[in-house]
């Protein structure tokens, strides 16, 4: 187990391992995303209540779900970095932070533009919306802390600690928002759509776009991590060789 971890934690091994399956991941991602988006945005029947507005679901739901799970992944990486001092774990965590922030922002913006025609408002201080806004703030905090340090090692460790503090805090924030919402606001507009009641023409494209966006998430994380590896290991011999061996497309 430790040996396997050690091997996975070596930047060079990570780089070489991902080189192999990157084209497959990219291909699968764009295939799924293409089918899901073309089908969902172009051919799925309009919703009987929301008309064409519901099509935002194909972007909104996967990005929102992704934004939560990618924080969990970032936290797992942060813990691995602190406990075993795995450099790759921190590089993955950094990439997770960037992708997570974008996914969270996309989920909030698509939600706002979905809310306007269906709820009649861009923003409402609902528990779900509020906790997502705070999740975005926490993501931004981790990124801000990381960029404030000059030393790469301190930046990694500090960002890891803050990520883990965030893990303890996020469930509390969620329940605080739920409690606060139930005191101040009547029944929520969310949750009136029963997923099982939707026809397959609507949820099958959602399935495709969902997995497509998860693929995209991993794809960006891996690509960014590879860049990070090349940058941080730029003085290592294998990187020098790799860079001089490959033809440079100028």
């Amino acid at each position: 187990m430790m040996q396997w971890l050690y091997k996975l934690g070596s930047p060079r091994h990570f780089y070489e391992m991902t080189t192999g399956f990157l084209p497959w991941l990219a291909g699968a991602t764009f295939l799924l995303l293409g089918i899901g988006l073309v089908w969902g945005l172009g051919f799925a029947p309009p919703d009987y209540q929301m008309g064409d507005n519901f099509r935002i679901i194909y972007i909104h739901v996967p990005t929102a779900t992704g934004a939560i799970w990618i924080y969990a992944m970032m936290a797992a990486m942060a813990a691995m970095h602190l406990v075993w001092n795995l450099k790759v774990a921190d590089m993955v965590a950094k990439s997770c932070g960037i992708v997570g922030t974008s996914f969270c922002a996309i989920a909030l913006f698509t939600g706002a533009f979905w809310g306007k025609p269906t709820w009649g408002t861009y923003w409402i201080w609902d528990a779900k919306l509020t906790s997502f806004l705070i999740l975005l703030f926490v993501y931004i905090g981790v990124m801000a802390l990381r960029s404030a340090f000059d030393s790469e090692t301190s930046a990694s460790k500090a960002a890891s600690v803050l990520t883990l503090v965030g893990v303890v805090n996020l469930p509390i924030i969620y329940y605080a928002a739920v409690w606060w919402n139930t005191l101040h606001q009547g029944p929520s507009v969310l949750g009136d759509r029963d997923a099982s009641a939707n026809p397959p023409e609507i949820w099958i494209p959602a399935f495709f776009s969902g997995f497509g966006l998860i693929g995209l998430l991993f794809l960006i994380v891996i690509l960014h991590t590879r860049n990070e590896i090349l940058y941080r290991e730029r003085r290592a011999q294998w990187v020098q060789e790799l860079l001089t061996r490959e033809p440079i497309h100028a």
Binding site: F137, G141, N169, I173, A176
Partner: peptide, 8 residues
């Protein structure tokens, strides 16, 4: 860093 974590 601190304000989002102080919300609860």
């Amino acid at each position: 860093l601190i304000l989002p974590l102080s919300i609860p």
